[in-house]
Structure formats: structure tokens, C-alpha cells
Design a protein around this nucleic acid. Structure first.
Length: 260
DNA sequence: CGTATTGTTATATA
DNA sequence: TTATATAACAATAC
């Protein structure tokens, strides 16, 4: 699930509850989510310290450790999430790492463990971790977008390529292309100015609309609200939606609004 | 048993 | 060399 709006939601959870408060303990319940860091080192780096304001780049959540050079780096894969609890003493079975504070705890939850939690010891290491990622999708300009998209490739896989643009996943990409009326297999180099304008405009509009809810909202007026129905129809024109695979991912589009 | 899954990466194939 | 496809990762759900 986690795409840019979801991670933005997790950033808010972190900022609201866990920033500037002393970490009283780190409970690694499943070390399978630790990437390049041991539970011991994570505990030693964090315990007794405080987190600074978290930042987000694409689907990465970056949380500096105050008073140290280190930054904790979280990625949520397909099934990760972040939860604050100040009442429920029972962790969820998929809570893999729990950060304890005096008045509650922050739980890194992830069913599938496809990604996980890293610790960049300094800013150089942090830059290295993010060196392969393109600009954040939320702030990319229209000109940047046009310059970045590799011309020969299919539009949807190009949008989802994190080294091109950081933050878009499968659902967001389909939603954006549907609203921009562009077929997912179009070649970026074939788009005219008006089409590029629509792509950029709808990219921003979908992100801005999705961020307050912290997810791609499955509203009936959105493509995302209809994609799970095999016989679902286009919210705009009523045509039966097409289902297929593009770039190896399940893809939904309207054959009328998004002609090939 | 089989199928599928919102992310990423390595490897294979054309 | 380039673009695309596939498998793998892990843990489910149908």
C-alpha cells in the first residue's frame, strides 16, 4: 500500500508523537526488517536520544537522531505502516520494531517484510542511500518531468521508476494516467505539450488530494475505487474498464478515455 | 493445491 | 546496449 501519500501520513504520525521525546527503549521483535544494522547497534544509537523532525523523500522516511550524526531511514515496502499507541499494551503480530517513549510507543509494522529499517551513520551515508532516487514526485516541476521521463519507455513504468521520479507506485500511477487521459503504454516522447501539461497537472492534483487522507482514496469517483471490480466501469464515461499488466504490474485503464 | 498482492532488485530474454 | 519480462523476497488472502 505505501506510496507517497501513505508515507506522508507516517511522517505525520512520527512528527506528532515521537519527535523531541526521549527514546526509553527499542524492542526489535523481528530482526528480519533490519537492513545493514544490528538490533544492538540500533538500540545503542537511539536509547536515551531524541528524534528530530522527520523528512520524506519519495517513499523513504528519514528521521535524524538529535545530537548524533545518524539518520534512521524507514521504507515500508508493500505492507509497512507506523502506529502510535499510548493505551493498547498488546503489539500487533506484525509489529517488528517498537520504539518506546515515556508516554507511549511507536510501532513499525510490516506483514511481508519486503523492506525495512536502516541507520545511516552520517550524512554521507544518507546521501549514498538516496543517490539512486529521482526528485520527489510532490515537488517535481513540469519541465523537470518532461526532461526526466526516458522517451523510449512506456509511460507507466517510467512514472513508477524511483530512479526517475520518487514516490509514485502502482495505484497512483494508474490514477494519474486515467485523470490525464493517457494510455499507460504511451511513449513519453510521443506526448505533445498539452498532454505533458495534463500529466503534470493531474500528478500534482492526485497527490494533493491523497495526502490529507494518507492514502490513495478508493472513492467511487476515482479509478482506484473501481479497480478491484473485474467488471467495473469508468467513473467518467461508464465504459467497462480494461485490466492487464504493464511493466509487470496489474494495470487498469479506460479504453475510451485513454486510447492507445 | 492453485491464483493473486499497492515495492524493489537481480537476472534473463528479446 | 536497451527495453522489457520474470523471479525472488515474505506473508498472507481467495
Amino acid at each position: 500500500m505505501p506510496e507517497l501519500p501513505d508515507v506522508e501520513g507516517f511522517r505525520r504520525v512520527f512528527a506528532e508523537h515521537a519527535v523531541n521525546r526521549k527514546v526509553t527503549g527499542v524492542d526489535v521483535r523481528d530482526s528480519g526488517v533490519l537492513r545493514g544494522v544490528t538490533g544492538r547497534r540500533l538500540r545503542e544509537t537511539l536509547t536515551g536520544q531524541r528524534f528530530s523532525e522527520p523528512r520524506r523523500h519519495g517513499k523513504w522516511l528519514l528521521v535524524p537522531v538529535r545530537g548524533r550524526d545518524a539518520t534512521m531511514v524507514l521504507h515500508f515496502g508493500m505492507t509497512g505502516s507506523l502506529h502510535w499507541s499510548d493505551e493498547d499494551p498488546h503489539p500487533h503480530p506484525h509489529d517488528r520494531v517498537i520504539f518506546a517513549f515515556r508516554d507511549g510507543e511507536l510501532r513499525y509494522r510490516d506483514q511481508r517484510k519486503l523492506q525495512g529499517l536502516r541507520l545511516a551513520p552520517d550524512d554521507d551515508a544518507l546521501a549514498g542511500l538516496l543517490s539512486g532516487t529521482g526528485p520527489d514526485a510532490l515537488t517535481v516541476t513540469r519541465k523537470q518531468l518532461r526532461d526526466l521521463l526516458p522517451g523510449a519507455r512506456q509511460l507507466k513504468p517510467a512514472l513508477m521508476d524511483q530512479s526517475v521520479l520518487s514516490g509514485l507506485g502502482n495505484l497512483l500511477s494508474d490514477e494519474i494516467l486515467w485523470r490525464a487521459r493517457l494510455h499507460p503504454r504511451r511513449k513519453p516522447r510521443d506526448l505533445d505539450d498539452a498532454e505533458f501539461g495534463r500529466l503534470h497537472k493531474e500528478l500534482r492534483a492526485v497527490l494533493r488530494a491523497a495526502i490529507p487522507t494518507g492514502r490513495v482514496p478508493p472513492r467511487p469517483s476515482w479509478l482506484t475505487g473501481r479497480r478491484d471490480d473485474p467488471s467495473g466501469s469508468c467513473p467518467r464515461c461508464g465504459t467497462t474498464l480494461s485490466h492487464g499488466r504493464v511493466g509487470g504490474r496489474s494495470t487498469v485503464w479506460c479504453p475510451h478515455c485513454q486510447p492507445g
